[in-house]
Amino acid sequence: MNYQNIMSQIITTAIEKRGQPENYSKGRKKMSRPGLHLHHIIPVSMGGSDDGSNIVIVTPREHFIIHWMLHRIYGGKMTVAFRMMIDGKYTTYRKINSKLYEKLVTEGIEQRTADESWRKKNAEAVRRTVKTQSWIESNKHALEKMHNDPQAKANHAKAMRERSQDPKWIAMHKEHLKNMHASESYRENHRIAMEKLRTCEKFQAGAKERGARLKDSNVWKEAIRKSSMKKRKPVIGINLNDGAIACFVGSQESNAAGFSDSKITCVVKGKRPTHKGHTWRYATYEEVEQYRPGHEWLELNKPT
């Protein structure tokens, strides 16, 4: 078995999926989801550096397999590193494979994040960190670099897409928002911040400029049009003389056909019996699908 080729393939795939951080310390803050590990492609004990080009983001299972292969290829320090990776934490298990290792790591993370005392301790540590000038400068530099780097933007967008599809992350995020909004100190800080923004001329000018650009944007106009279309209530009209059926989605269509939207609404609400020889009621999705196939309203209100 060619361990070197297999290891290279795992690392290449991981880089294609998750990219590479700027360096080791900053990479720890840029995990695309909880439970990922940072791995030195060339181990530090063999002369590897902490530069981003030597760092890869891997899953616990991939990390286990890579270190096992390093142990098989080089022995010595790599064997010690592999033993330290598993013996220090999971001594109760006689034999550990990559799947079991990943399971244990994941369970450990879940237990830790569910611990209220750990969350408070971690939140306090984060608050202390973000107040330091070095962190502020480092974060500012990283953001500027990301905004100027198309690849970094793409990696960030990909990471956010992965997060938004992770049920555990969604549930955790909702719980965090719920707790945050329930906090009296948060609401007070938010109120103070909003008051400052309202009196900030630079912010007001920027908001007006963004609003003007948005109104001139075809994307914004299309979004407004679709939102309006989605909210329309389709109606069914049945001719009392010949039983002919008319189906309209919105007032524009009914008015264009010679009917009065306001009088149709009165019939629907029972305030008058008919309008222009028709009885009227709200249409169901299936009826619109039957009488107005292919209408845009159907796609916007498609049942999930």
Rank of each mutant, 00 (worst) to 15 (best):
E16S: 15
D115Q: 05
Q165N: 13
R198Y: 10
H39T: 02
H141L: 12
W135G: 04
F82S: 05
L104Y: 03
A114Q: 15
M7D: 13
H176D: 08
K26H: 02
N122C: 08
E116W: 04
G258R: 00
S8Q: 15
H176E: 10
K202E: 15
I224S: 08
Y291Q: 06
V288P: 12
I264V: 03
A114W: 00
E209D: 14
G52P: 10
Y282T: 05
M229W: 04
S32N: 09
L100A: 06
D242A: 01
L38D: 00
N189Y: 04
G211T: 10
Q20I: 14
E116A: 13
C200V: 03
A152F: 11
T199S: 11
Q4I: 15
V235D: 00
E222N: 08
R127M: 13
S49D: 08
A157F: 08
N301Y: 05
M146P: 01
L177W: 08
N148T: 06
L104D: 01
P43H: 03
H147A: 10
Y74H: 12
S134C: 01
E175A: 13
K221F: 10
G108E: 02
K231F: 09
A114T: 11
K131C: 08
M146S: 11
S183C: 11
L38I: 09
Q133F: 02
V105N: 04
V56W: 07
N54I: 05
F248D: 01
H40K: 06
M146I: 02
E110A: 12
C247D: 03
S260V: 00
D50A: 03
A246E: 07
M31R: 06
I136T: 03
D149M: 14
E287K: 06
M84D: 07
Y74A: 02
H37D: 09
K231D: 09
H71C: 15
I57K: 07
I96C: 11
V105Y: 12
Q133P: 00
S164N: 14
K233S: 11
M78H: 15
Y3D: 11
V105W: 03
E102I: 08
S185A: 10
I6C: 05
S49L: 07
D242Q: 01
G206K: 04
H37Y: 09
V126N: 13
P34V: 07
R94A: 08
E110Y: 06
R83Q: 12
A283M: 06
W220L: 09
D216F: 04
S260F: 02
V235T: 01
K103M: 09
L100N: 10
Y186T: 02
V267Y: 01
P60M: 02
A157Y: 08
W220N: 10
Q151V: 15
E175N: 08
A14Q: 11
K99R: 12
N5R: 13
R61S: 14
T92Q: 07
T79D: 04
H190E: 05
I42L: 11
K233Y: 02
F248T: 00
R272S: 05
